[in-house]
Amino acid sequence: MTATDDTAPDTSRAPRTTAPALVSTRRPRTVLAMSRETGDALRHEGAVDRLLEVADLAPDLLVTDFADPAAAPALADAEVLLTHWGCPPLTGRALTAMPRLRAVVHAAGSVKHHITDAVWERGIAVSSASAANALPVAEYTLAVILLAGKRVLDSARLYRERRVRYPLLPYYAGHGNYRRVVGVVGASRTGRRVIELLRPFDFTVLVHDPYLDDAEAARLGVRRAGLDELARRSHVVTIHAPELPETRHLFDARRLALLPDGATLVNTARGSLVDTEALVTQLTSGRIHAVLDVTEPDVPPADSPLYGLPNVLLTPHIAGSLGGELGRLADHAAAEISRYARGRPFAHPVTAQELSRTA
Results as ranks from 00 to 15, higher is better:
D6G: 15
D6H: 15
D6S: 15
T11A: 13
S24K: 04
S24N: 02
P28I: 09
P28C: 12
R29T: 14
T30Q: 00
V31E: 14
A33L: 10
A33K: 13
R36H: 04
G39H: 15
A41F: 05
R43A: 05
H44Q: 14
G46I: 12
A47L: 05
V48G: 07
V54W: 03
V54H: 04
D56L: 02
A58Y: 09
P59Q: 11
L61H: 11
L62R: 12
V63K: 02
A67M: 09
D68P: 07
A70K: 07
P73M: 06
D77W: 04
L90H: 01
L90A: 13
T91R: 04
L95K: 02
M98T: 10
R100D: 00
H106D: 02
K112S: 14
K112Q: 14
T116Y: 07
T116V: 00
R122W: 09
I124S: 06
V126Q: 06
S128E: 07
A131V: 09
N133S: 12
E139Q: 15
T141H: 07
T141Y: 12
L142E: 15
L147P: 01
G149Y: 03
K150Q: 01
R151T: 03
L153Q: 14
L153R: 15
A156F: 01
R160N: 13
P167W: 03
Y171K: 05
H175P: 02
R179V: 00
R179W: 01
V182Y: 10
I195P: 01
E196L: 11
L198S: 05
R199H: 11
P200W: 00
P200S: 02
F203C: 01
V207M: 08
H208F: 15
D209N: 06
P210K: 08
L212Q: 06
V222E: 07
D228L: 13
D228Q: 14
R232H: 07
S234N: 10
H235Y: 04
H240I: 02
H240A: 08
A241W: 12
P245W: 08
E246W: 05
F251P: 01
G262H: 11
V266S: 03
T268F: 03
A269I: 10
S272K: 15
T276M: 09
T276W: 07
E277P: 00
L279H: 03
V280C: 05
T281W: 11
L283Y: 12
T284F: 01
T284I: 12
I288M: 12
V294D: 13
P297G: 07
V299E: 14
P305A: 10
G308V: 08
G308T: 14
L309V: 02
L314I: 00
A319P: 04
G324V: 15
E325P: 06
G327H: 04
R328H: 08
D331P: 06
H332C: 15
Y340V: 06
A341M: 06
A341I: 03
R344N: 11
P345C: 00
F346G: 02
A347P: 00
H348Q: 11
H348I: 00
T351G: 10
T351N: 08
L355G: 02
